[in-house]
Design a protein around this nucleic acid. Structure first.
Length: 414
RNA sequence: GUGGCUGUAGCUCAGUUGGUUAGAGCGCCGGCUUGUGGAGCCGGAUGUCGUGGGUUCAAAUCCCAUCAGCCACCCCA
């Protein structure tokens, strides 16, 4: 009995919801194509090592959120929790290191073993983009502009804001980390329990703690921007200037950090207020160390991932379905010819519905429920005259027309 | 992993201090209408009351456990 329910944190996506998801993915795909990205579909599972190496052994995703199992051959396998690691692996596996830059778009399901809540599922879907091999800020500007454009074309631009920060290069980040640890260690007793743990593990994360006491300390904490070295500062300024010149609105948030180890320089999120606690709809940044960390040649990268479920929750209306034309046979003798007409219309690109049973009244009712725009009624009378009755279901007007003219006459309803 | 709230028809929900055959609206099916939909009228079907246990003469109702959903923490898309 319980096995007839979907597994916790998974769901069946259908009808309007499915159309919403498709819409988000196809808008993303289309815009990415306009920016010169090509699509890549990597496997939805990889050797566990791929994620452990890239995400950082201590990250939450690796320590408690991976869907990991041993397969029949004894390999340690993990359902991908995010897209970048698999793409980095594919980039190395396929020898693309000789073919830079690479610009990838991807779309598909991701898996994390988490407690479900609003905007958070165990199987969820992302679209994402990655640029590999471009060390300069132009790539950061391009991917962020792409994200902003996608939100705009989805009609949710006014519900989201872009927050951006720089984590600096390795040197800057290490320097900042040291002063931050020193600062928070000085206030250790005032920190929340969670943040005391973060102090050991990932001190930058204290900066986005929601704890009230922590927030007071954070307000007084040293700013990342004061610890960026010259190169990192210039890099960040170029990104900000570039976005501004493209008209991308943003707000610099010095407390914005990243959970995953491989980020450096630019970190950004497009967030919304209307989704509850899970406000990030697009998140990403630069990850210059990732490919090397995986065992490939040192290759810079920058990209983002967007949550399809979260974005489609922001959509006001998924795009409408095309209205079908109902083909309605009356009487046994009309079945075959009606099937033929439906077939011809479908070959000509029309959306055609033909029910499987019922008299004329029932089929008309069904056509109405399906929001059909027209009905093609075919009975013995019409058959004798080699014609059909065409009824406009909005106006109620109908007329008999020769079968040979049907395809053309229906163009008014396309 | 932690905490709070909630599980009754396909959907939204009602169900009194435990008491007989568990209800409504919407939807669905059928009829009024055997060649005409949307409106109307008439009729109909549908529930392991999330699951398992317990208390009781009697449980949708009380108790325990469990599962799931929602919301928040954590973390993140």
């Amino acid at each position: 009995m319980t096995s007839l329910k979907p597994v916790r944190g998974t769901r069946d996506i259908m009808n309007e919801e499915c159309r919403g998801h498709r819409h988000v993915a196809s808008v993303g795909r289309d815009i990415a194509r306009r920016y010169g990205f090509t699509e890549i579909a990597t496997p939805i599972f990889e050797f566990s090592e791929v994620f452990k190496r890239t995400l950082g052994e201590a990250s939450d995703i690796v320590t408690k959120e991976m869907y990991a199992f041993e397969d029949r051959g004894g390999s340690e396998i993990t359902l991908r929790p995010e897209g970048t690691a698999g793409i980095a692996r594919a980039f190395i596996s396929n020898g693309l290191t000789q073919n830079l830059p690479c610009k990838f778009f991807y779309e598909g399901p991701m898996f994390r073993y988490e407690r479900p809540q609003k905007g958070r599922l165990r199987q969820f879907h992302q679209v994402g983009v990655e640029i590999l091999g471009v060390p300069t800020p132009q790539a950061d500007i391009e991917v962020i502009a792409l994200g902003a454009q996608m939100l705009g074309e989805l009609g949710v631009g006014d519900k989201t804001v872009l927050e951006i920060n720089s984590l600096g290069d390795r040197e800057s980040r290490a320097a900042y980390r040291d002063v931050l640890v020193a600062y928070f260690t000085g206030h250790r007793d005032a920190l929340s329990e969670d943040s005391r743990a973060r102090l050991e593990r990932n001190p930058l994360r204290i900066l986005d703690s929601k704890d009230k006491g922590d927030r007071e300390l954070i307000a007084e904490a040293p700013d990342m921007s004061d610890y960026l070295n010259e190169g990192s500062r210039a890099f960040f300024d170029t990104v900000l200037d570039g976005l501004e010149s493209l008209g991308v609105e943003m707000s610099v948030n010095p407390r914005l950090v990243r959970g995953l180890d491989y980020y450096c320089h630019t970190a950004f999120e497009f967030t919304t207020e209307v989704l509850g606690a899970q406000g990030a709809v697009i998140a990403g940044g630069r990850y210059d160390g990732l490919i090397e960390q995986m065992g490939g040649p040192s290759t810079p990268g920058v990209g983002w991932a967007a949550g399809i479920e979260r974005l489609s929750m922001l959509l006001s209306e998924p795009p409408a379905l095309p209205r079908p034309i109902a083909v309605i046979p009356v009487g046994e003798g009309a079945q075959g010819p009606a099937m033929g007409i439906a077939h011809t219309l479908r070959e000509n690109g029309y959306v055609v519905d033909m029910g499987y049973s019922g008299n004329l009244a029932k089929r008309m009712k069904r056509a109405d429920r399906m929001n059909a725009c027209a009905a093609v009624i075919l009975g013995d009378d019409e058959l004798e005259r080699n014609s059909a009755t065409l009824r406009d279901l909005d106006s109620g007007e109908q007329s008999e027309i020769p079968l040979d003219d049907l395809t053309d006459r229906l163009s008014a309803f396309r």
